[in-house]
């Protein structure tokens, strides 16, 4: 499979701060790739380098086998710091960005109108951008990023600030674009969003790549430390059982997630529970990306740093 984005030993520093360290990345064409990490991990800097908005201090960046600059018009980019010309009409704004991306012609306005309907904003083409709500503006910004039918779409925190309804509309379009064969690089610090839609995960922390692979392969790399139990009696007490470190509510009202101690064997603990407490179901849970990431931080930076990251993720 061809490589859409190829980063080799890329580094970038701002003064004393090293934002990206010796980063190597290969993103295949047609993949839906989650680019994850907490705030300040180096995601936006990496993306800006891919877009040739800023230049790497070291290393090589190639997009579709050419320099990033030469491939600019083949990329659709929704930056994290995004905005619109407040006084411009919606149609004019999208048309202007499309023109800058090399798109001209009589059918451009028709294409924009079709897309406005698809993002559920059919009546706004002659409204000034400042007249739109923040969520509507974000959808217009998303449209400006993809209007020129790019082969590679880079979305930096595309759902931030969107209500669930609008997030679903945008999510559905991203899904469709992927189905059409577009390569999508999707950056977020809300890890469970990526877990739901990405088939490939790249995780960075403090400018270093800490994880890279398919979601299944990454989950397989980490020892399961959580058991999901649905007891017959919901008042059952699990905390006193050997090997159980903590208990939290599960995804359903009647289930519980049991975190086991680091040295415990999940299968042995599971057998112990089933033997002592009547259960409707009991299984070893797949670790979530949040848990995997925290685990990774514990390995690389210790538990104190992991606690700080856990707090940040829970607030996201």
């Amino acid at each position: 499979m061809s490589i859409a984005i190829d980063l080799t030993n890329v580094s970038k520093a701002f003064g004393e701060t090293r934002a990206v360290n010796d980063l190597n990345l290969q993103i295949p064409e047609g993949s839906m790739c989650g680019f994850l990490g907490p705030n300040g991990a180096g995601k936006s800097t990496t993306i800006r380098m891919i877009m040739s908005i800023i230049h790497a201090d070291q290393g090589d960046i190639q997009v579709f086998g050419a320099t990033a600059l030469a491939s600019k018009d083949r990329i659709g980019y929704l930056p994290e710091e995004r905005g619109v010309y407040r006084k411009m009409k919606v149609l004019q704004f999208v048309e202007y960005i499309a023109n800058l991306k090399g798109m001209h012609g009589a059918s451009l306005r028709k294409t924009i109108r079709t897309w406005l309907e698809r993002i559920e904003l059919p009546e706004v083409e002659n409204k000034k951008c400042e007249e739109l709500s923040k969520g509507m503006q974000q959808k217009v910004q998303f449209l400006a990023a993809i209007i020129h039918d790019p082969e590679l779409i880079i979305l930096d925190e595309p759902f931030s600030g969107l209500d669930p309804m609008n997030a679903q509309v945008i999510g559905s379009i991203i899904h469709d674009l992927h189905a059409e064969g577009k390569t999508i690089l999707f950056s977020t610090h809300v890890l469970h969003q990526a877990e739901q839609i990405c088939d490939r995960i790249i995780m960075i922390d403090q400018g270093y790549k800490v994880l890279d692979g398919s979601l299944a392969s990454i989950q397989a790399q980490f020892d399961p430390k959580v058991l999901t139990i649905e007891p017959v009696d919901s008042s059952a007490n699990f905390t006193s059982l050997p090997g159980v470190e903590s208990v939290s509510a599960g995804k359903t009202n009647t289930s519980f997630n049991l975190r086991i101690t680091d040295n415990a064997d999940p299968t042995a603990v599971l057998q112990e529970i089933v033997a002592k407490v009547p259960v409707l179901s009991a299984r070893v849970a797949k670790p979530s990306l949040d848990e995997i990431f925290i685990e990774q931080v514990v390995r690389s930076r210790g538990t104190e740093a992991a606690d700080a990251v856990r707090t940040e993720l829970h607030h996201a």
Partner: peptide
């Protein structure tokens, strides 16, 4: 200044140098 404060600058820079 408007392009910077409106955050439209990065959108523009994704299309032009």
């Amino acid at each position: 200044i408007e392009e910077k404060s409106n955050k439209v600058m990065e959108v523009l820079l994704s299309a032009v140098s």
